[in-house]
Measured scan of single mutants.
Amino acid sequence: YKIYPYDSLIVTNSISVKLPKDVDRTRLERHLSPEEFQEVFGMSIEEFDRLALWKRNDLKKKALLF
Rank of each mutant, 00 (worst) to 15 (best):
Y1S: 07
L32N: 00
F37Q: 02
S14K: 10
S33K: 05
W54R: 10
K18E: 15
W54C: 11
V17C: 15
K21Y: 10
L51H: 06
R50F: 08
V11Q: 14
P20H: 04
N57K: 08
I45N: 08
P34H: 11
F48P: 00
E35G: 10
I3G: 02
K60V: 03
T12G: 13
L53Q: 11
A63W: 05
P5N: 05
A63F: 07
F37E: 00
A52I: 08
D49N: 09
Y4E: 02
R56G: 03
E39R: 14
S44F: 09
P20E: 05
L59V: 03
E36A: 08
E29P: 01
T12C: 11
N13K: 08
L51Y: 06
G42T: 08
I10Y: 04
E36Y: 02
L65R: 02
L59M: 12
D22R: 04
A52C: 11
F37P: 00
L64H: 14
K21D: 15
K61G: 06
A52L: 08
I45D: 04
G42I: 05
I10P: 00
S44C: 10
D49V: 05
L51C: 07
F66V: 08
K2T: 13
F66H: 09
R25M: 13
N57M: 10
R56V: 04
P5R: 05
K60F: 02
F66W: 14
K61W: 07
E29H: 02
K21N: 15
L28V: 03
Y1G: 07
R27D: 03
R50Y: 08
I10S: 04
K18I: 14
L19F: 13
R30P: 01
L53V: 12
N13P: 11
K18L: 14
K2I: 10
V23N: 01
K18W: 08
R30W: 04
V40K: 05
K55H: 11
N13E: 13
L19A: 06
R56Q: 14
A52H: 11
K61I: 10
E35S: 10
S33M: 04
I15F: 10
S14A: 12
V17F: 04
E36G: 05
V40D: 00
P5H: 04
K18V: 15
F48R: 00
I15A: 15
R30A: 07
E36Q: 12
D49W: 06
W54V: 09
T12A: 11
I15R: 03
K18H: 15
F37K: 00
E29C: 02
S44W: 07
V40Q: 06
